[in-house]
Design a protein around this nucleic acid. Structure first.
Lengths: 196, 196
DNA sequence: CCAATTACAAAATTAGAAAAATGTAATCAA
DNA sequence: TTGATTACATTTTTCTAATTTTGTAATTGG
């Protein structure tokens, strides 16, 4: 049978592209493998050569989606500003990315957080990655370790949790977020007891 | 037609009782006015003499549900401990009530927060009430006013928002909550600038 | 070999009729 | 007068059959 002429990697990439475009237009739940396949010019069964199942394709979409976010927070971690300042920037970056997406691609953003909620490994890995970045920043700031990073993350839930974030970015929210980060950091610095 | 012999107030109370019991057993979404009416020994249409519509009955259930919570936080506000300590107690009390209910009556707890989410006046009033209590406590502690109370409330979302709270109460969560409250209060105290 | 295909089984979704529940009106009796 | 009734219109939910979609197997051709 006629090959597509695409390498396996390119075929995967193309499928993810097409899926993402379709999700943007028609929403997450209405994605049909047959449509993705048609747009690629193959039969729907051909997709199963590249993805174990539909969930695997969706995971690949998710991954591409998370990739940009990862790049942005990573560049902040690698910055040269004082650690406390980078923590603030780090949260602001996350807020901007997520709220902007909640605004521009609500279908994808909320779809995600319902359909693929928490328990998917791709998401868990991403969350673990974020936690590690924050833990490093907190340690660099001399304000603690894993526990303190977790506390900070929890304190910022109202600004970052998908249920609570709302479309944006909105300057007032961003200002409130910055203030809360500074307050929590100041509070941590003022805590009695040893610091690693 | 034969009267029930109940005063309007008693009839309302009884309807709320029965509705609450049925919701406990079969969940929020499956509540049927006809069943409530049958348990009261009247026709379903009779309920409309006491409640504008089904939503109004549900609101009355909600109100009875919120009543105990209100009493508990109020008694803490009226306490004699230092304001900062009462703020901690106040949040712990809210955590205990909500998490216990998420544990014991998940049907009601989550049903609520899906079915009647946010926009019902009963809920909004309750939230406003809580905000006022917290604002007063924050002011008493000399840590600010409305804005600072809102910041504190947002900081505690991870422990109190229905999406995030989870069943409980769990001692580790309670400890983390206490620590975060103290950290935020310390951070507020350390903030530069005037305080009302 | 291996990325495709077709054909098909199993699972999930949709559609639309049937049933049930909500809400209203006219009326009744304590 | 008012809290109730019955009867009925409207809206919502439920159920089931038809259809679509997903996933598998056997097969093919570059």
């Amino acid at each position: 049978m006629p090959r597509t002429g695409l390498s396996p990697e390119d075929a995967r990439r193309r499928a993810v592209e097409i899926a993402l475009a379709r999700i943007r237009e028609h929403g997450f739940v209405k994605l049909r493998l047959a449509e993705v396949a048609r747009d690629m010019g193959v039969s729907h069964a051909a997709l199963y050569a590249h993805f174990r199942d539909k969930a695997a394709l969706l995971d690949a979409v998710t991954e591409s989606w998370l990739c940009e976010a990862r790049a942005r927070t990573a560049s902040i971690c690698a910055g040269s500003a004082p650690a406390a300042e980078r923590i603030e920037q780090w949260f602001v970056a996350r807020y901007r990315i997520k709220s902007a997406r909640a605004q521009s691609d609500p279908e994808i953003f909320y779809g995600f957080n319902e359909a693929t909620a928490g328990e998917r490994p791709v998401i868990r890995d991403h969350m673990r990655h974020l936690r590690e970045e924050l833990t490093a920043l907190v340690a660099e700031a001399g304000l603690g370790g894993r526990d303190e990073a977790e506390m900070l993350e929890e304190a910022m839930s109202a600004f970052l949790h998908p249920e609570l974030i709302g479309p944006g970015p909105r300057p007032e929210r961003e200002a409130a977020l910055r203030r809360l980060v500074r307050v929590v950091l100041a509070g941590l610095a003022a805590e009695p007891g040893p610091r690693r």
